[in-house]
Design a protein around this nucleic acid. Structure first.
Lengths: 377, 377
DNA sequence: CGCCATTTATTCAGCAGATGAATAAAACAA
DNA sequence: TTGTTTTATTCATCTGCTGAATAAATGGCG
């Protein structure tokens, strides 16, 4: 990014930007690059010299832990993606210490194999009630234990600062970083997939509640006495919308034994969706009910947060066509038109790659590694 | 407040405060007062000279419009309450123009009768979806019309700046201004009475959503196919908890005709509560159901906003003893213990006086009348 | 009664960050 | 070559704030 643009972004004069960047260039934290490339024609005047973070300042590893999968990604200090890997490894039956050992080994092996150079920090995203500030996972459906001091545990084992974050929050952050429109005003990202998570951003900054953020919105109990949820409650949003719930209920319709798997794969979910699209009435009912719950959930979000943008993302969007009619009807029944008109609803296809990218960006931001510390550390 | 205290509050050095206040004292916006009074003993050192806003800079009128009542309050620039009045006057059957005429006349007469001197601004609070920024009431159960440009209408008639605000937001602001603890972190104030409104504050500042704030949280639909609500929907939080709903359902239990009044008086509500306290099982059921809804509502607030403080206020707290058992049970069923532990729940008795005070403070703040403009205008 | 301790308020030199104006630099166009 | 356009830097300056020193105003105490 050129100095003038930085100034516009930060609301500063170009003179100030020159001042500040000069010392960073001296120290080698930034590098200037003559921009040979130029897209659109009609460029006159002195060409802008773009400034980049140096690539040699070390890198950051982003990790996502799912039910039986760990995704890893290595990003260098210039923000370029260097390597990624995913490993099939169920974590949910491990004891706390063993869990952290396995995770630390997995991360260390990844760093070694990719010749990562100095890894400055690790960011890890997982489902559940994550206390980012204190680095504690209070409860997670993925990790069996309660009140797990995950950040300090990994930090000790790896000898690096570790930031942990709820996965929906990380995804929301990544999505808003990709789309400038979503960074102004308030954006609520509802991630539907393994579970249902929320990331809420105000002016591009993640909203932090008293401890966890509002990311486990999926455990709002919408229907008294509704279906069983992983959290132990009944009638949570998740218990209708999450992959495990849809898959479970689909099996029950077919009078098959209730599945023990808490995470049906993409194949299994695809099969359910296809069968519904083919017109299976019982399955259509299932998606109809799920769409209603989604509409109610979005309605509650609109009424409590009044966001300018609502993003529905995650693997669950694969069935958006089945959900949409009842989703829209339920939303309409919940909110007055003036209120509904405020929030633009976006459906965004988002991969797990995006998620690990998000947690890397969050780690850089939250751990104050942006500038001087990268050099010092 | 003394200069040293101002400095501590703003995180500035006393030197700076002296600097800044000097010019304001010159201009007569502030006045210094030798503090003769002193509460606790053991005062040594040079006594602090307290600074006040001058009383002569004009005043502000705060107004609350209820269903058949208008409350008015005159506050001088030093923040002292000068006069208040309440008038029985139903507004809900008036056309838009007539409504604004009546309100303007009422306010003007109040200003005249109290010898208010120069009234610099008017703040008005009412129920409903209030767009404070543009001064529009999109919908209100009190005022029949839709999309009423109330601020500009009154401003033209009175020749003064007018700020309009949702009444629950105004109440929330007043409550947090009275209690310093509630100004740090996030505070959600649920006002239960004529309706159910919400005011949410982050670091003492009212949260503003895309347009309305989240003040009409009472119209979140909790129970599909529940009782009728004033908004036209069914099963809203309000339709269980608001005075009109409790009163209506109590009448129906006794097989009396459904009441047409949308606002039972304090007498009528007191009678219902007393009857329930005396052990009437059907009425106890009513309050049991209302308490459950309150618990669900607070649970949703905790999961979406994750506040540090939750305040339950408004006339509805009169029946808190009847609501509490089912309230607490429902809240417990909704949230995991770690989450529930974060929010301290306060039940605050709050009068309508406090509300008009709140809207005056908001008017001063939002209309930038704090300092120089008061002198200039 | 006079002196000391204590707290509040003011003065003043100086610093840090940002700015506007002027200038230099680097390209393209004619 | 000269002019135009845009980017970047230099520099004097300004603003807001600060720490240290000082003045002011009181009570406590011998």
């Amino acid at each position: 990014m050129a100095r003038v643009e930085i100034g516009q972004h930060l609301g500063m004069s170009p003179a100030s930007v020159s001042d500040l960047t000069a010392s960073l260039l001296d120290e080698g934290i930034l590098v200037a690059e003559e921009s040979a490339d130029q897209t659109s024609g009609l460029i006159r005047g002195r060409p802008k010299t773009r400034l980049f973070f140096a690539e040699t300042l070390g890198s950051v590893i982003g990790v996502w832990t799912g039910f039986n999968r760990v995704e890893l990604r290595l990003v260098d200090s210039a923000g370029r993606n260097r390597a990624s890997r995913h490993i099939e490894r169920p974590l949910r039956n491990l004891e706390a210490e063993e869990l952290m050992d396995v995770l630390a080994q997995t991360i260390a092996a990844f760093a070694q194999d990719t010749g990562a150079g100095t890894v400055k920090a690790v960011g890890l995203a997982c489902q559940g009630y994550v206390d980012t500030r204190d680095g504690i996972v209070a409860w997670s459906p993925v990790l069996g234990t309660r009140d797990l001091p995950l950040a300090s545990g990994l930090s000790q084992r790896l000898g690096k600062p570790v930031l942990i974050e709820n996965d929906a929050s990380a995804m929301a952050f990544a999505i808003t970083q990709r789309n400038a429109d979503l960074r102004s005003g308030r954006t609520a990202c509802l991630m539907v997939g393994d579970g249902v998570g929320l990331g809420f951003l105000v002016q591009g900054e993640l909203y932090r509640g008293a401890r966890f953020g509002n990311s486990e919105f999926g455990h709002v109990r919408l229907r008294r006495g509704g279906p069983q949820c992983r959290c132990g409650g009944r009638g949570c949003i998740e218990a209708y919308l999450a992959d495990y719930a849809l898959h479970r209920d689909a099996q029950l319709i077919d009078h098959r034994p209730a599945p023990t798997l808490l995470l049906p794969g993409e194949d299994a979910m695809g099969a359910v969706v296809e069968q519904a699209r083919a017109g299976d009435p019982a399955l259509l009912n299932l998606f109809h009910a799920a769409g209603e719950v989604l509409g109610d959930a979005v309605g509650i979000l609109i009424q409590t947060l009044e966001p300018d943008h609502i993003v529905i993302c995650g693997p669950g969007t694969r069935a958006m066509d089945l959900l949409r009619p009842s989703f829209e009807a339920a939303l309409e029944a919940q909110t007055i038109p003036e209120l509904r008109a405020l929030a633009a609803i976006h459906v965004v296809e988002s991969s797990m790659d995006l998620l690990t990218e998000g947690v890397v960006m969050q780690a850089l931001r939250e751990l104050d590694l942006d500038l001087a510390r990268l050099k010092a550390a």
